[in-house]
């Protein structure tokens, strides 16, 4: 094959993905941008309304509540999920008896569909017959009513999302396995304890991957809170779990405010970009990567 032919066939291979990106991402994005400045309801033709939606956003108490719910969610879920993935990944990276079964167990919740996991957690978090409260009661700890209280609901959703961490877990596991054992032996010869090996060798060498995972998880947590919130709490109680995707959905499909929901979507994109930018800046500032 000539270079030209190779080039042509590589475009052919890319075509389905390019089409998908165009139809499923780019066109909706452009439409969202347009609708955000209209009063589009899904019926009739949209009228351009200038900055009305933006003003409405500013004064909308539900948007403020939604923003708060999402902020708390990301602040709790991202560190917890990352910690769980790193701890389990490092723990299970070493070859040990039965290790593969533990690795399967950690990955398994990731293949369970969100809906099934949410239904499972409705049971787990049930205040009366749910296993979580039974365990808490057995060891004499308070038994919260979970989804019936604002903070109980927020923590409940985070607890559920602490389980599907298989991808980050695998990435950490693979990265740890790629670090030569000699580095640890050289450190052991110098009297470096396992804890200091973790601090001085493992974590610095994992840093590039951790940065990537943190940024990715921030983006994901801003978005995938939708299914659990919808099934577990439906945004409540008292808007405590009215995460941005939930509010966008409500505005668009419950109230037919497509124009306004497009504006909230733009806000979500802007917030996501801002959070990622802050993370990148911090990483540079703290010289996590050299």
């Amino acid at each position: 094959m000539t270079t030209r032919q190779v080039e042509r066939s590589s475009w052919a291979f890319l075509l389905p993905y390019a089409l998908g990106t165009l139809v499923l991402v780019l066109i909706p994005a452009v439409l969202t941008l347009r609708y955000a400045f209209t009063d589009f309801t899904g019926l009739g033709s949209p009228q351009f309304t200038g900055l009305d939606n933006l003003r409405r956003l500013r004064d909308d108490p539900f948007f403020a509540a939604s923003l708060q719910a999402s902020a708390f969610h990301v602040a709790m879920a991202v560190p917890l999920r990352l910690f769980a993935a790193v701890a389990l990944g490092l723990l299970l990276a070493a070859p040990r008896r039965g290790g593969r079964w533990y690795r399967v167990a950690v990955y398994l919740p990731t293949v369970v569909p969100d809906i099934a996991l949410a239904l499972l957690f409705l049971w787990v978090l049930n205040p009366i017959y749910g296993p979580l409260n039974q365990v808490l009661g057995a060891v004499g700890l308070p038994q919260p009513t979970w989804l019936a209280t604002p903070w109980g609901a927020r923590v409940g959703v985070v607890l559920m999302l602490a389980f599907p961490i298989g991808e980050a877990f695998l990435v950490v596991l693979a990265t740890r396995r790629a670090i030569s054992n000699r580095l640890y032996e050289a450190a052991a010869l110098e009297g470096c304890t396992p804890w200091r090996q973790l601090v001085h060798i493992t974590l610095p060498l994992l840093a590039p991957v951790l940065v990537l995972l943190a940024i990715r998880d921030t983006v994901v947590m801003l978005q995938v809170s939708f299914v659990p919130a919808y099934l577990l709490t439906d945004g409540g109680p008292g808007n405590a779990t009215l995460y941005l995707p939930v509010y966008i959905y409500d505005q668009a499909f419950e109230f037919f405010g497509f124009g306004y929901s497009a504006m909230i979507t733009l806000a979500l994109i802007a917030i996501t970009l801002a959070l990622v930018a802050v993370q990148v800046l911090l990483v540079r500032r703290w010289r996590v990567l050299r």
Partner: peptide, 14 residues
């Protein structure tokens, strides 16, 4: 290892 007062140079240098 660290109480033996020996230093080691590894094949892959580590």
């Amino acid at each position: 290892p660290h109480r033996r007062d020996v230093a080691m140079v590894f094949q892959d240098l580590a």
